[in-house]
Design a protein around this nucleic acid. Sequence first.
RNA 1: GCCCGAGUGGUGGAAUGGUAGACACGGAGGACUUAAAAUUCUCUGCCCUCACCGGCGUGUGGGUUCGAGUCCCACCUCGGGCACCA
Length: 1010
Amino acid sequence: MKASKGTLYNHLKIEKKWQKEWDAAKTYQTEKGTKKKKMYVLDMFPYPSGAGLHVGHPRGYIGSDVYARMKRMEGFNVLHPMGFDSFGLPAEQYAIQTKKHPGPFTDKLVAQYKKQLEIIGFSYDWDREVSTHRPEYYKWTQWIFLKLYDAWYDSKKNKARTIAELISIFEKSGNKSVAAVTDANTPLFSAKEWQAFSAMEQQELLMRYRLAYEGFAEVNWCEELGTVLANDEIVDSPTGPVSERGGFPVIKKAMRQWFMRITAYADRLAADLEPLDWPSNIKEIQKNWIGKSEGSEIPFDIQAESDDKESIASVSVFTTRADTLFGVTYMVIAPEHALVQEWQNAISNWKEVSAYIQKVAQKDDTERMSTDKEKTGVQLKGLVAINPANGEAVPVWIADYVLASYGTGAVMAVPAHDERDYAFARKYGLPIREVVEPLFKKTGDKDGVKESLPFKKRHAAVAVIKHWKDDTYLCLKWKKTDWRGFVIGGIETGESAADAAAREIVEETGYTSAEMVKEVSGTVHAQFYHAVKEENRWAHFHPVVFQLKNGDQVETAESEKEIHDIVWVSKNEMETYLSWVGDMQLIWKRAFDEGASSQEGILVHSGDFDGLDSAAARAAVTKLVGGKAVTKYKMRDAIFARQRYWGEPIPLQHAANGLIVAMKEKQLPLVLPKVASYAPSGNGESPLAGVKSWVKEGYETNTMPGWAGSSWYFLRYMDPTNSKAFASEKAVDYWRDVDMYVGGAEHATGHLLYSRFWHKFLYDMGFVPTKEPFKALRNQGMIGGADGRKMSKRWGNIVNPDEVVKLYGADSLRLFEMFLGPFDSHLPWSTEGIIGSRRFIERVWRLAQKLDEKASDKSVQKSIHKTIKKVTEDIAQFAFNTSVSALMICLNEMEKGKVSTKDFALFLQLLAPFAPHIADELWNASGQKGSIHRSSWPKHNPKLLIEDEVTIGVQVNGKVRAEITVAADATKESLEAAALALPRIQEFLSGLTVRKIIVVPGRVINIVAA
RNA sequence: GCCCGAGUGGUGGAAUGGUAGACACGGAGGACUUAAAAUUCUCUGCCCUCACCGGCGUGUGGGUUCGAGUCCCACCUCGGGCACCA
């Protein structure tokens, strides 16, 4: 320990020294041609923003760096790279403002950003750095695009295949037998017809199959800004939607766009989430985003209401609730639905209808989709739809609450069991018909108890009775079982629910002034064990609401009084009071707010299906009416174009004859041309449209969106300089996939989904060996300002890491960011808090100068080995805060006793991932050779962890009353005896009888006494 | 509205169903110092108490259990996602 003896800890000197040393020795260089096992630890690469870093940014990088460093010491060949997602808006804005090319500016930002990262002491292999804006990189982004353009999705083989294969199928047998993911309404053709099509016609048909395809999309167009806006760049105003910047009007406009057919992969994207080691909320978000829903398509005949009942079309509806088909009281079609136009002649109120269609068309998406907007619609008079289940003719409406883009663009309306249909039906006076009774199956059903009458025959009225004066309601509480609920009585033949309830009120409670307020529509179906009558019962409950006029009461039969008490419960307390009586609770709810009940249950009023449960009914009903089971997804195809300059050019050429020519691999990269102006062209096209030479060649003027370059960058790190492929086969075979991916949760539905999509495509085409790109994922939480607000210029609460490093050192910063709290929690920065980390580091430094050359105390040894175990386990689980805490505890212990140089070195190794500079300094000062970061990670000695004595708590009736220190291997009997012998325990037990003693070895003894 | 997740001291947080509050910040008091900083020692959930003893305590109300921050039910608050997806 000679070198640092007596010297003060100077973080500036030490950190600089070691960063230089590591750089020179290539300490963190990924090994090539090694037999070691691979470990790919990846950070989401940043956009090199000009604003620079604040202390929140490096948090994720520090976490992954700690992890990577431990893995490296554990003997893995670690790939831990960093790069830059360098196409993007800020550089584009800069170019527009300064009229300078964004390239050099971006290079400068990259350099700046890199410098800021370097002083924190990450173990990146900078030889593998990539930037998405460099032509050597985006050549391969373009190459992947071309592969996607040259592919279609075979839904039978469930994988992507090349367009050449598709063409050969078309030539042989047309498209009738091709099961593919394609545009809606793709026409069918035979082989002969295919061969007769013109090149242009063939191109258009193929476009319907390609995974990268051209189509039209409605976009938010802002004339004044001359640009397309994203949904979140638009705000509502009294005059309609306007741009957030400037407040200029925004309209919907159909524009030519490139798309990615990500929907082809919807099912696999959802299914393959399951085995991934990802945070469950991210999986959940992706699952919801994909929005898989299984249901049925059911054909409805549309008839003109004229004398001959002429059938004019068949319209399929998509529903997840085929079990409610008998409850259909009308049908709704999206206003944009093409068929509506075709029916013009059959619709008697066409004027009204077409006016409505126009009105809806003018609304933009944000308005149409806005939350509590009232639904509107118009009936298509002169038409009816025939319910295939019962042949009933129901009215047909168009309404803006039905989306043309989902399902079939038409729905069967079941107001009794769908909230939206309910609201609409109420507004327009359409009938509501209940066909499913919510079912409650209560726990406590007993096997072997005789069943009562079949469910159809048992009907019971339930009376919800309001007090004559107070705002309370009558409940009965059964004395024998504590069951609670309302007054219930069987309905006799020929009796109405109201009559039965009224009769029962007098019988059970004696109150004579009950007056019916309303009969609640919709019955509740319960299957329960009747604890009083001791049998399993099924019942239809018919809720009826009553009001007592006064407190007049007649004497009830003794038998009734014995069974239950009357309890008055207020409205507020009712839900709690009934918390475990599910059916009564539902009756209570329905008594006050009527509405649609979307719960599943048992079918009623459904012909032969009565008595079936929803799940069984769905299959049976679908089958009966000739419908088919189908799966739909919420996710839409992704737009793959931006009308901007600063992005990857799309490598396609439009020939003069309108045909699209894909560029050849050897022509790539297609490099961005020089332009006179970076500003938007003003007609919705990118600045590239203003470049004569570019347009003359017929190049695409759209550029790729931001997510193109980031969807595959992790593959490039495997072999970053390869000019013949995005990465060599050998490299891809070795590195395969990312073992640990660290980044923000905000990318859940963007980058993380798009990357998976591209990766699966590359897998289908045989370019990568794994189905998924990221085996494990961890999200870092954000660090907010000390004031609890988001760190931003606006609040003046930004803390700059450069300054923190200068003041306290990179090691202190790293340690503190890991110690602050759980890795994935959002936490406020604390200027005082970092002092604790700095103190810890200084104490380590001081301890290094007081080491004993001989042996450590036994307690110190034990403590170190305990820490080895804890830190190793915790880093593996990204529990960095508790690892740091364990290191602190260990230091506290070491300071209390003698520590040998050898044992201290173990501690330094544990510290190394968190505080790499000081660890290497002290490691080398103690005479060790080479960098600590290339040493092998210590293993704990289990023998040292065995305790011979333990202190455990002694409880009396669950409360700790004393402590007792005993031999670790003490028998149960001796523990019991020792515990009972304690004077304190004796005190608590006086006057009580010991009933039971529970002994949890090494933990606690609980004496149960009464 | 629907779907997730979280609520623990003054603060950040810790705790395989088994002694709640580890570790750290902050605070109070003492030592060292002419003094301050640094360092170091003691105390620090709340209530009662000089102190001991004791009581209370993990958002609220119930439940399961010998024992619940942890499991179950309902509610409240906050954060995130979706937003007429039939």
